[in-house]
Computed example of a mutant assay.
Amino acid sequence: MLTVSVKWQKELFPKVEIDTSQPPYVFKCQLHDLTGVPPERQKIMVKGGLLKDDANWATLGVKEGQKLMMMGTADEIVKTPEKVPVFMEDLPEEEQVIAVGHTAGLFNLGNTCYMNSTVQCLHSVPELKSALVSYPSQKSSDLDHTSHMLTSATRELFNELDKSVKPVAPMQFWMVLRKKYPQFGQLHNGVYMQQDAEECWTQLLYTLSQSLRSPSFSENPDTIMALFGIQLGSRVHCQESGEESSETESVYSLKCHISQEVNHLHEGLKHGLKSELEKASPCLGRSALYLKESRINALPRYLTVQFVRFFWKRESNQKAKILRKVDYPLQLDVYDFCSDDLRKQLEAPRKILRDEEGKKAGLKAKEKTSGFKRQ
């Protein structure tokens, strides 16, 4: 731990602790609490340059008691409204739904938090809700009965959540989910077991992808893939024989693999895009080790990231959880993980965003230094 002082505008914060085992982004979050300046707008001078979120403290040479200079504008303080507030519980239920801005919660039916969190995440996607509204009540001949039932139950549950501010009991949905995927109905001592939210997410998305891609459903030929699908291009290389091939695949999430070396989400995603696999080598005539490196060829409208926290512990023959803390940014930039072709497509919109952010920052700085207060 290091203790430094931070000068920001006319204020001096004499004792700010730096945990050098954590990345500078954590330090910026501390300064956000002190000053109200968001981490992305902070400019901290260290060794003649700006402090980066993922810099290494060991190479920066920051010393005990050192004085750091920070620049950046704080968020505006929201003024208390002059009108007398109307209490939410005094409004009719229909108006409460509109006033709250979000819909009802879900009752925990007994270790069903994994299911509830999955449903609430998907319910927040307006395009998915629109697709489900258009989903036909009659089952298509090419779709199995349980998939149709689960899709219909999802639609009905979303409809309940949209109309209520009181907690909803997703009993019908839960019954159909267990019928479609029996693993979610496992019992231990007569009690339903806790399950993995990622498994529930994956299974439900797979079912919806089949239902909403049915020939009888013409809303969008591939709704789920358009909303959540990530197209990956991979290079598979065998160092032993020199064989190399390429392949493409579509997935519904990026994996953040967690190890002793992973402190940041970006590091975990980088590990997740690399893997080793053993397969038959035509050149060697036997199995060999291949290295698979992937890049993103196309991004979805909604990007899902899975923190891979569970692994199989061989010595105890059971699933174990990794409790290591992994920091993540409020805005995730995956540009470095994209293919060259996708990077070229992203350059123009990224430049527009940078220019807009620069204009906003410049305007605020000008207003602050002019000495005039806008009315």
Rank of each mutant, 00 (worst) to 15 (best):
L2W: 03
T3F: 07
L12C: 05
S21V: 11
Q22Y: 10
K28Y: 12
L31M: 13
D33P: 11
D33L: 14
L34S: 02
T35R: 01
P38R: 05
P39L: 04
Q42C: 12
V46A: 08
G49D: 14
D54K: 11
W57H: 06
T59L: 05
K67F: 08
G72V: 10
A74P: 06
V78C: 09
P81T: 09
K83D: 02
V84R: 00
P85G: 11
P85Y: 13
V86A: 01
M88R: 14
E89C: 03
P92A: 12
E94A: 13
E95S: 10
H102W: 00
M115G: 04
N116G: 07
C121P: 03
H123D: 01
S124I: 12
S130E: 09
V133N: 14
S137M: 15
K139S: 01
S140P: 00
D142T: 07
L143G: 10
D144C: 07
H148V: 15
H148D: 15
M149W: 01
S152F: 08
R155L: 15
E160C: 06
L161P: 12
K163H: 12
S164L: 03
K166L: 09
K166Y: 05
L177I: 12
R178S: 12
K180G: 02
G190T: 09
W201P: 05
W201G: 04
L208G: 00
Q210N: 14
S214E: 07
S214V: 10
P215A: 14
S218D: 00
M225V: 04
M225E: 02
L227N: 00
I230Q: 00
H237D: 07
H237T: 06
Q239L: 09
E243D: 05
E244S: 10
Y252Q: 15
Y252S: 12
E261Y: 10
N263C: 02
E267H: 10
K270V: 11
L273G: 01
K274A: 11
K274I: 09
C283V: 09
L284T: 02
G285C: 10
S294I: 00
R295K: 12
N297Y: 07
L299Q: 11
Y302E: 07
V305T: 05
R309S: 03
R309W: 06
F311Y: 13
W312I: 14
K313Q: 08
A320D: 12
R324Q: 08
D327G: 15
Q331Y: 13
D333C: 07
D336R: 11
F337C: 13
C338V: 08
D340Q: 14
D341F: 05
L346Q: 07
L346S: 05
E347S: 04
E357W: 07
K359S: 04
K360P: 00
E367A: 06
K368E: 08
T369V: 13
T369Q: 11
R374F: 03
Q375M: 00
